[in-house]
Design a binder for these strands. Sequence first.
DNA 1: CATTTAAAAGTTTTT
DNA 2: CTTTTAAATG
Length: 774
Amino acid sequence: MSSLINGSGDADTRRFLETLKKALNEKQYEAVTGDEGPLLVLAGAGSGKTRVLTYRIAYLVAMRGVPIHRILAVTFTNKAAGEMKERLIELLGDDVRDMWVGTFHSIYARILRRHLDVLGMRNDFVIYDSDDSLRLVKRIQKELEISTTEHTPQQIRGSISRAKNDLLDPERFSQNARGPYQYAVADVYHRYEKQLRENNALDFDDLLVLPIRLFREHSDVLDIYRSRFLHILVDEYQDTNRAQYESLTLLASLHRNLCVVGDDDQSIYRWRGARLRNILDFESEYRDAAVVRLERNYRSTSNILKAASSVVANNVGRKEKTLWTEKETGSPVKTMVAYDETDEASQIAYKVQELCAAGFSLGDQVVLYRINAQSRTLEDTLTHQGIPYRIVGGLRFYERKEIKDILAYLKVALNPRDDISLIRILNVPPRGIGDTSRQRLFEYASRNKLSLFNAVVGYDPEHPPEDLAIRGKAARGLASLGELLSWLHDRITEVHVGELTKGLVEELHIISILEEERSIEAEGRIENIRELLTATNAYQGSDGSGSIQEFLEEVSLITQVDETEFGGDFLTLMTLHCAKGLEFPVVYIVGVEEGLLPWHRALNDMEELEEERRLFYVGMTRARERLILSYVTNRYQGGFGMMSRGASRFLKEIPQECLETSGSPVGSYFPKRRPYAPGARRRSTQKSSRSKTHSSSTTSSDSSVTLDYSSSQVPPTMILAMGKRVEHPIHGQGLVVARHGFGESLEVDVRFADGSILRFPANSGELRPISIEY
DNA sequence: CATTTAAAAGTTTTT
DNA sequence: CTTTTAAATG
């Protein structure tokens, strides 16, 4: 492939412009080739936002001769950055690899690594994730004797985070504090910042906030970057917060070539400090800003687009936009009513298979929900029916306990001041150092003005310090930890991360300890550790050296979407927030109910309610061809009562003409749900007992009543679920005990009365499901 | 004194 | 229905 970057002849120029004209519509072309100066691209959902951003960079490089290192592109996830880079490499050639494309967090981390020392901190900091920060807040709350029940550590940590993103340092926060809660937060905040500095650690917010301090207090550093970055391009601008806004303003203050792309209707991170006004006020902020509106949608059918637009039109605080499409009308948006969440899950599972029969693959379909807790019921049902699925988000790989434990060792070895990580691994794996010993160790360290690390490493079991009353098992444990840590510390800068991790895992004997547990969870953990070893082993940093510092940084900035490999024949499940920026041919949104979507705590606040509406809008606009919205009449939460009350107000905002309603309110046919009996195990026994319970009242929540099997549209996969009773013309009655494959290729194992187990293709028609008689 | 076991309480969204 | 906190055990 010829690289555009080297060819600057007239012929190449003309060819490139031709390519652009062909690849882009008029508005997109305008945005891509827009002049220097501030540029606001208001890009509606599915209007080719990423495309514009990518082509604009290519245009700047190829046509305007902007050197690659003088461009800064900021995206929302690492994955988006990676994809943009791949695309740019195709367009411009391999040199693009050195371009600064990344998230705010990763780009600023890079800057801080170079310059943080001028602020009196160290450049070799570690990054605390939210779990680490939370542990720190908890510890401080205990030290300050602030009740953790009255104000949860999560709350306080949230308040601190918000303060930081609003650029309030502890002093300013204290001055503005009103009321007992804010005073408490102020105290914790003070100590929290002090601890971070002492531990040589930065939290996520620091990565955004410290560059601002750096730039403001050291104009020479600011000058390096603001003169270097001739063009700055920012994706998802509607979700930037105050700190991000301020830092961008500083970085763009010299050349003023700031191109921001976003959609105010898709701003969904207010709770994280995102300020809608950043995008709404861009034009007044930069009076000379050019504005381009991308209103043509290339993604959804007109029915879906119309439905979504009608919903979001109810928001007041927005820029007026009219999205249009040349796509066909398409299927109507479908609403489904279910009795409860189990019924909802069954109906979704049914619909998924119906659409599989209609030619969509599982990978084409995604189920979106408001809160993570909703995934459980779906998972149960999908597992039960043998539908392969994949969850995006939830617990991230690098946040799993066993992984974080191992990484904590590396962090401590790299940065001996990292007390939070050290405390974490003090007794992991169990080595006899409990609460009491830990407390004594703390006291001993502070009495002797030793860092915790030195207290541990310097511990000599032959001559234990007199003022450290640790003996016996705890003493031996402490000694072995000290040995291990100094062993690690000696190698941390020399050895490749893979080799060191391997040595560490062996030294800890984690695998054998877990093997002895002989539980499913332990097996999963072993799997995870093996995966970590593979990852570290294969790791090559930017210079191919396998530096541990670089590895740890990369790992802590991984986003939820980054981790998931898309493609493959899996049904995808994720929260609405996670779905931002993605698209699928078929989208289900479940739990479209008052109290859930909109979330109950948003009901009394106009702005919060609008954000919920935007969230719903984002979900709807992910769909290319089919959109299915479902709600239930009885949703239970935990064991305590109902949590949502009927269809969401947002559903009523969709025009009737693009809707199709299905699924009757079947509530009356269903038995009232029993209150949870304590001790009634769910996972294993419920599955078999559930169908019995329901069928005893002539119905089954496995949809055998709500869905009409006799209409023969029901795919066999649906009927031949695990545990279903079936009849075979020769062998008689049996029970489905296993399933292999999926869809057309599904085969099921059936155990018959004589104990024999036989395998049948599900679509052979030999097996007939029978309703269970009692 | 550490670990296991039982009871109690709390659940949005995430870089 | 999970996660955290308190009491019992080894």
